[in-house]
Each structure stands twice: as structure tokens, then as C-alpha cells.
Design a binder for these strands. Structure first.
Length: 686
RNA sequence: GCGCCCGUAGCUCAGUUGGAUAGAGCGCCGGACUUCGAAUCCGUAGGCCGCAGGUUCGAGUCCUGCCGGGCGCGCCA
């Protein structure tokens, strides 16, 4: 890991600059650390002299020379070199650096970090999951892993909208279109792929509505029944939601995605979370009753378009202190009710029913520990590593872990919900919790569409002369049943992987082959869903996603498998294991590592591998995991090139062999960690 | 109409605190398996970074305008 070295240089340099140029805190430039384009220039470099040039009225080059001259000794730094163009470059103590990083890691220091809640997945529990949902969970789960890597405690929640329109529509499908009873549906669920069945039924219901709009009265009626409970529709709705959620959990488990708590919307209603939040919002003036105009009788929240309404976001740090007390914050901007052009969002309808935004506000308050109420909790299912909990409104377990009340909240929801998520933050500010707003993140990402080729392959080709046909992609639509089901994709992926594995390892048993194929399939999807910027739409193409070559998850896995093979052979052939290797590194001549034999390639590998912590640090505030994916890929790429060029087992010079093996060991360790952050495991062979 | 996002190689994309020579993958073409596994590697070709201004020692990156595309803006969720 490289960050401790950054910190050491930065601290040293800051003190040095203060002495050298009598700079006080305000005048002190930030010491940015970068990587020179090649190792002959240095291992780390800073453009700090450029920043000082104007203030000191001196050429950057002269400043860099002065700093280098006064630098003195610093642990881990072999040499400081001012570059002719003004950069200040550093050379590291290579041997110590690598030995340090190979030593067994000390137990992670206890951090005072407060809990973060990550909510992701949140699929309507009325049909099978599709490829778009996988993007959500892949991003959400990676966020969870990355935060935990940094020592931040994380609670993972999956929100279940069991009382919404989508469940109601499937209830209508079963009751009205198919005339089934609860028992009939249960039988069906026990004997079919229930989530697939509902996928089709849901599409049929949508069509049925489209044929005759008056049929929508069935939806309204069902929605009402579900919300009030104690009737057939509610029982069917509850059954469907429960069964479909279990299907979703199985699908997600295939992707190595897991949760701590399922929060059910029905419980938010039954426990009257909204009533509580409503009181707070009314008291603070965040919402008010319209007495005239088209919205008369509605409780509304004014929508602010100015900058002040969108507080800057903060990201958690393991050692961050508690937020400033609210008293030190700027006062909430006054809401100008007289402003004629102002827009208003209805929170409570004139018929007294709260909107989706209202429920979400209450839920967000609870997540931040600002509501003053809690759920009851039941065990949803037992798992090897402990129970999966779910909320409930009556008869909960007497003892349960503590949920909610987090310092940081991440809501992983697609970009179309940006507007609502912004309202959520505004509500927090208006209710007097600006710091809660700053610590609430909408983790937004773009949609997944289908390529025309893939749509055609699946039988969704749009009519030749339609608008859709002219577009560069085909939109998925759960309502129309148009899309790639997650399990179908995973099945295809794993089938293809199994074929590849079998071709290369004919001696494998079927079970072994399938176990490995599964790991490879997961690597392929998860990497594919992570490697694009979140604000870029993914035009999903089966062929591309199925590819195990080039920039892909399996490519990175393959590099690690190769590295592991080297160690297995080293041990078998030469009796040299990792511990034995480590023990000798202090004595072995380090010419190969130092680049004295003409190539710096193993040092390049080590330095690049060490950057994982820096990459993670960068990835948390930006929420751009493509950076992490790219890092892993380029490290794997560098390793593969090295592997090809530089033999280890057959290298005759013992010192060279040992340093190469040590570098491979470190790269392997770091790549394994990077893959784990993406939810990808390493197969024993592939 | 208003708001947000995108425009970089033939295609798909990196380039996220403004820094040293704009990079990958795929595709094309040409090479490398009696050698730690070729799901690999090496090489060739391919760029008015949408356009025009501005800020800066320095702009693909920041600002303004324009052009092209996507998505939002409901007493739906």
C-alpha cells in the first residue's frame, strides 16, 4: 500500500516549505503526488514548485532545486531529484518497500468511524430481476466492499416495495385474469419458476390495461386493499412479494451479493413512520397546506432550484470526527412563499394519502436516526454466516442487532430518480438537518439498454420503421417484459465458461468444472457492469458481455491463477514456499529490483500493485468504480506481459529468481484483494 | 420551456483534485506455443479530444455560447 508513503512525504514537505519560504497555513500549497511517466525520472513526483512559482516570483526549476537541496533524509526515500522542467521527484528504497509490503499485515487498527448505510437492489417484488437490476447491485455491493476495506462499518439494506403498483398489478393478473386463489398461486409457486411466471403475467396485465383503460380501476381497488390489509388481495400481494424476494435473493447470491436487512415498505406504513415525519416537517414549515389553486387541499413542499438547496456531499473517512454541531451551520435559507414562479411538490394528496416522496422522506429520516421511531425485526432466513433480518410491524424478536441511525447514507438508484433524491435532501435541510443532507448520497447511475443485435437474438426487435428502430439501442421495459433476465444471463455465461474450462481441463469432475465456471461467470458480469462510468448508459450486448478476453473479469482472474501456479510449482519443484522466500529477501542482492540488469519491470509491477489503497481512496468520494476495474486490469496486463518475458522457475540466477517471485507474490496478493472488492473470487485453475 | 448527463481512434470506452509524450479493449493486418498454461504475449495502422471563444505558466479536464444525442420535470412509484 502506498498511501503511508504519500503521507510521509507530504508531511515532511509541508514542514520543509514552511521553514524554507515562511509560508503560513493559508499560503501552503497542497502537495499533489503523482507518478512520473517512467521510473528513470523517479517513483513519485510533485508539481508543487509550479504552484509556488508565482507566489515566490521564481522559476519552478529553481524552486525544485532549492527544495531538493534542503530535503534531508526521510525514511523510505532513497533520493530526491529536481527535474529540469520543475517537477520534484522521489526515488523510494525499493528493497525495504517490497519487504514491508510482503510482511503479514498487522491487525487493522480500530477506527472510530461511524456506520454507513448502503441501500441497493430494491427491485419491485413482482417479477424476475433483469440486467438493469444487476448494475444496481453490482455497484451497490462494490460500494459496500470498498467502504469496509477502508474500515467503515456498513449496514446493507434492500428496500422492498411490497405495497406499490407493480405488486398490485400482478395481484390483478392472478385474481382477475387467471382467477386464482391464494392456494392456487402457492401451488404454482412451488412448481414453477415463479419469478419468470410473474414476469410474463405482469407483461400480460400491462397489455390488458392498454386495451381498455377502464380496467385500471382494478389496480386502484387492489392498491387500496393491499394498503388496508386483512383481505384476499393483501394476502396474495404479501405472498407474491415474499416469494419473489426469495427469488431475487437467490439471483443476487449467485453474484456474491448479500444484505443485512430487508426493509419492507408495508412496515413503514403500518408503523406510521410517515405520521411522525409529517409532524416534524409541518413544525419546521418544510411542508404546508395549500388552500387555493389547483393543489388546494394538498400538503406541498416548495422546490428550490438554487445552489443552496443542494448541499455539498461529504464522504466518510475512517478517522473523521463527528460532524459540526448544527449551531455552527449556516441557517436554512428562508422559503419565499410569495414567489409566483415557484414550483411545489405534492407530499400529501388532497385525499389524505401520502405520496412516494413522503414515504421516502420518513425512511431517510429513520436511516439517519432522526425519526424517533424504529421497526420491529424478524429473521427472514438463516444463512451460514448469520441470519438475514427483515423489518416487521408486530411480533418482532426481542433481541436483534441495531439497525438504522447511520452517519452516512448511500441510496443506489438510477439517474431517473435524481430529481426525487434531490427533494429528499431538501426535505432534510428544511427540517433542520443540513448535516444529514450532506451525508446523504444519491449514488446515481445510467440505464442499461439492449443492443439491436441482442434484442433481435431475444426476439425483441422493434418494427423496422419505428422510432425505436432508428435509435442506437433498444430500451428495456419491465412493464412490457422486454429485457434480459438476470438468471438467464448468468446461466448462459456459466454454460459458456464451463465449456471453456472443460476444454482446457478435461480431467475435472463436473462439479469442479461447474464451480469454477460459476466463478468465471460472476467475474465476467460483475466486471462488465463496473467498468463503465456510472453516468454512461450501458448498451448491453450478449456477445460482448460473454467475452472472456480482453478487458474482462476473467482476464484479471487468469493473471492471478497463473501467479498462483508459479508458487505451486516453486514449492513442488524447489521446495521454496512463500514464507521461505520472504525470509531470504533481506540478504539477497537486490540488483534485479533496483533495475541494475537493465530493466525496471519488477519494480514497476510492485509500485503499481501498491497503489490499491490510493485507488480505493479515490473511488469512495467519486463513486467511480470503473477506476478500480481499470486499475486491476492494467495491473493484470502488466503482470501478463512480465510473465511472458521473464521466466521465474527457469531463471538460473538465484537472486533474480527470488526478486521476481517476490514481485509476483505481491502483485498476486493485491490483485486478489482488488478482485474481492469487486465481488470476484479467484478459481484454483481455469 | 426549464434542469441534469453525454460527445475523445472504425466500434465500445479510460483519461474524476488542471500537469511531463492523449491511452485501453474490440475489430483490421502481421508475428510468437518441444519452454512457469496461448482465456496469453509482441508489433503495424488508426486522433481538428463536437464547434467557437475565454481563464491559466499549463486545458481532453475549468468558464461562456453554439451544434448534436439521451434522460428527467405527475395529487405515479
Amino acid at each position: 500500500m502506498i498511501l503511508p508513503v504519500h503521507d510521509r512525504i507530504r508531511t515532511h514537505l509541508t514542514r520543509l516549505l514552511a521553514e524554507l519560504y515562511a509560508l503560513d497555513g493559508r499560503a501552503m500549497p497542497t502537495v499533489a503526488l503523482e507518478y512520473p511517466p517512467n521510473r528513470t525520472l523517479g517513483d513519485l513526483g510533485t508539481p508543487v514548485a509550479f504552484e509556488l512559482a508565482r507566489r515566490l516570483k521564481k522559476a519552478p526549476r529553481a524552486i525544485a532545486q532549492e527544495i531538493a537541496g534542503a530535503f534531508g533524509a526521510l525514511e523510505g526515500i532513497a533520493r530526491v531529484a529536481p527535474a529540469p522542467n520543475g517537477y520534484l521527484n522521489f526515488f523510494l528504497e525499493r528493497r525495504a518497500f517490497l519487504i514491508d509490503r510482503l510482511a503479514p499485515a498487522p491487525p487493522a487498527p480500530r477506527t472510530a468511524a461511524r456506520k454507513a448505510i448502503v441501500e441497493h437492489t430494491a427491485i419491485n417484488p413482482n417479477k424476475a430481476a433483469h440486467i438493469g437490476h444487476l448494475r444496481n447491485s453490482a455497484l451497490g455491493d462494490t460500494l459496500v466492499r470498498v467502504l469496509r476495506f477502508r474500515g467503515i462499518p456498513v449496514e446493507v439494506q434492500n428496500y422492498i416495495d411490497d405495497t406499490g403498483v407493480q405488486v398490485a398489478d400482478v395481484v390483478v393478473g392472478f385474481r382477475v385474469l387467471e382467477r386464482r386463489t391464494v392456494d392456487g398461486i402457492r401451488q404454482l409457486a412451488d412448481s414453477t419458476r415463479f419469478d419468470y411466471y410473474c414476469w410474463d403475467l405482469y407483461a400480460r396485465v400491462t397489455e390488458w390495461y392498454d386495451e381498455d383503460k377502464t380496467r385500471l380501476s382494478h389496480r386502484a381497488e387492489t392498491l387500496h386493499d393491499i394498503e388496508h390489509g386483512g383481505n384476499d388481495a393483501a394476502a396474495i400481494g404479501a405472498f407474491i412479494a415474499d416469494r419473489i424476494v426469495r427469488c431475487h435473493l437467490r439471483t443476487m447470491a449467485r453474484m456474491n451479493v448479500d444484505y443485512d436487512l430487508l426493509t419492507w415498505e408495508g412496515d413503514i406504513l403500518r408503523l406510521k413512520f410517515w405520521a411522525q415525519a409529517f409532524d416534524v416537517l409541518k413544525a419546521s414549515g418544510a411542508v404546508y397546506l395549500k388552500t387555493e389553486g389547483p393543489l388546494a387541499g394538498c400538503w406541498v413542499m416548495p422546490i428550490q432550484e438554487d445552489e443552496g438547496s443542494n448541499p455539498k456531499s461529504q464522504s466518510p473517512k475512517p478517522n473523521a470526527q463527528s460532524p459540526k454541531p448544527e449551531g455552527e451551520r449556516e441557517p436554512v435559507t428562508d422559503i419565499d412563499e410569495e414567489d409566483a414562479g415557484e414550483r411545489e411538490k405534492v407530499i400529501v394528496r388532497s385525499n389524505g394519502v401520502v405520496t412516494y416522496v413522503g414515504k421516502d422522506i420518513a425512511y431517510q429520516f429513520w436511516k439517519l436516526g432522526l425519526l424517533g421511531r424504529d421497526f420491529q425485526y424478524r429473521i427472514f432466513e438463516e444463512r451460514p454466516h448469520g441470519p438475514l433480518w427483515a423489518t416487521c410491524s408486530t411480533g418482532g424478536e426481542a433481541t436483534h442487532p441495531s439497525f438504522g441511525g447511520a452517519a452516512w447514507v448511500y441510496n443506489v438508484i438510477d439517474v431517473r430518480q435524481s430529481y426525487l433524491q434531490k427533494l429528499l435532501k431538501q426535505a432534510l435541510v428544511a427540517a433542520g438537518h443540513p448535516e444529514g443532507a450532506e451525508r446523504s448520497h444519491h449514488f446515481s447511475y445510467e440505464m442499461v439498454a439492449l443492443s439491436h443485435a441482442t434484442a433481435r437474438e431475444l426476439g425483441f426487435a422493434p418494427p423496422p420503421d419505428s422510432e425505436e428502430a432508428k435509435r442506437p439501442f433498444v430500451s428495456v421495459s419491465g412493464r412490457k417484459g422486454l429485457g434480459v433476465k438476470a438468471d438467464d444471463l448468468l446461466d448462459t455465461l456459466m454454460r459458456n465458461a464451463a465449456r471453456e474450462v472443460a476444454a482446457r481441463n478435461p480431467e475435472f469432475s463436473e462439479a469442479e468444472r461447474d464451480r469454477i465456471a460459476q466463478m468465471i461467470g460472476v467475474a465476467a458480469v460483475r466486471y462488465f457492469l463496473i467498468k463503465f462510468s456510472t453516468n454512461k448508459m450501458i448498451v448491453f450486448d450478449l456477445g460482448e458481455a460473454l467475452s472472456f478476453e480482453g478487458e474482462s473479469g476473467p482476464y484479471v482472474q487468469y493473471a492471478v491463477v497463473r501467479a498462483n501456479n508459479i508458487f505451486q510449482k516453486l514449492q513442488r519443484r524447489d521446495g521454496l514456499d512463500e514464507r521461505g522466500l520472504l525470509a531470504t529477501l533481506g540478504e539477497v542482492p537486490a540488483g534485479e529490483l533496483a533495475g541494475e540488469y537493465g530493466s525496471h519491470e519488477i519494480w514497476e509491477l510492485v509500485l503499481e500493485a501498491a497503489r490499491l489503497d490510493e485507488v480505493v481512496e479515490q473511488v469512495i468520494p467519486s463513486l467511480e468504480f470503473s477506476v478500480l476495474a481499470k486499475h486491476a486490469f492494467s495491473l493484470a496486463q502488466a503482470f501478463n506481459a512480465f510473465y511472458h518475458r521473464s521466466p521465474i522457475l527457469n531463471e538460473e540466477r538465484d537472486d533474480v529468481r527470488r526478486w521476481r517471485a517476490a514481485a509476483v507474490m505481491y502483485v498476486r496478493n493485491q490483485l486478489t484483494r482488488a478482485l474481492d472488492l469487486m465481488g470476484i473470487s479467484v478459481p484454483p485453475r481455469m
